[in-house]
């Protein structure tokens, strides 16, 4: 296994001949970051700047008025905003933890244990990766309904636990762990469960970080389950709440600012998780090579 950081060849000083690389990279990075800067500046724009034509990219007189407006709108609704936030935090936490565990266990078994039809399982998974997600929403509803998960917080969690991408990434990563490592452990008397806990989990930490980030994305931004499975308002998630809030206000002039502020509030947790996990995630991608 070639370590991604194995050969530290980064020079300590910038040489003049490298300036051209920086020029390219910095220009491209600026493009990459542009939308995020735009989001922040849009949320801080006062109303007259939001409707300027031609639109300005950067905010000129930043104000927190949009956030205050957002707060005012949310404080008059019947159900307090914290309730939705609580739902989202619980749901996202459970989904991230459980889906990592399930994918890691399955990935380990499919990669390192011998049993029948494991190839078939993996192929089914790859096909599921390609399928249009929208087309299975309705059949899923029937299953959720029969299981009695409608109007139940579990209805947000259970349907999205089996993540095809998660299993795919983790299995690719476990494939790179040498078999000798596992054999030697089992000769020393380790059971498969012990191998999983003591060897596999520590080694695939980066892959699990990637899956965690993807699962977080999926659960935190999920509005579909609130929309389809939940009739009880108090069980809906924060993401759904935000979309209804901005959806109703979009047509009003004042709504534009509130929508921008809401979008920023929805986005910030994503960014924070990303910054915390990114170095590990990137390592995974480099290791797994997605082959």
């Amino acid at each position: 296994m070639n370590s991604f950081h194995g050969n530290k060849i980064n020079p300590t000083r910038i040489h003049r001949s490298q300036l051209k690389y920086y020029l390219f990279l910095i220009a491209l990075s600026a493009f990459m970051l542009l939308p995020i800067v735009f989001m922040f500046s849009q949320a801080l724009k006062p109303i007259n700047e939001l409707f300027l034509y031609p639109p300005r990219f950067f905010v000129e007189n930043p104000t927190l008025k949009n956030f205050l407006d957002l707060f005012n709108v949310t404080s008059v609704t019947v159900i307090p905003m914290t309730r939705f936030l609580f739902n989202s935090v619980v749901v996202t936490g459970c989904v991230v933890f459980l889906s990592i565990t399930i994918s890691a266990m399955a990935g380990f078994a499919l990669s390192k244990l011998q049993f029948k039809s494991k190839k078939l399982i993996f192929e089914a998974n790859v096909i599921a990766l390609m399928f249009v997600p929208a087309a299975i929403a309705i059949p899923r509803y029937f299953i959720v309904d029969t299981l009695g998960l409608t109007d139940n917080l579990l209805g947000h969690i259970i349907p999205i636990l089996a993540m095809p991408v998660g299993l795919f990434l983790i299995k690719q990563f476990v494939d790179q762990i040498p078999n000798e490592l596992i054999q030697s452990a089992s000769i020393d008397g380790a059971t498969n469960f012990m191998i999983f806990r003591k060897i596999i989990i520590p080694v695939i930490m980066p892959a699990m970080a990637t899956v965690a980030i993807l699962a977080f994305q999926m659960a935190w931004n999920n509005t579909e389950t609130s929309e389809i499975y939940m009739n009880n308002e108090t069980l809906r998630t924060f993401a759904f709440y935000m979309t209804t809030l901005t959806g109703n206000l979009e047509n009003r002039v004042a709504g534009q600012g509130i929508a921008a502020a809401a979008a920023l509030i929805m986005f910030v947790p994503n960014l924070i998780i990303f910054i915390f996990m990114q170095s590990r995630v990137i390592d995974t991608m480099a290791h797994s090579g997605l082959k």
């Binding site: 078994a109 244990l113 899923r140």
Partner: peptide
């Protein structure tokens, strides 16, 4: 080994069959 193999994949298979394969 086969048994533990199935045991490890089982939670995933249940989820997959119910919410991906069957739909």
């Amino acid at each position: 080994e086969m048994f533990t193999g199935y045991l490890f994949v089982l939670p995933w298979i249940i989820g997959f069959l119910l919410f991906m394969a069957y739909p």
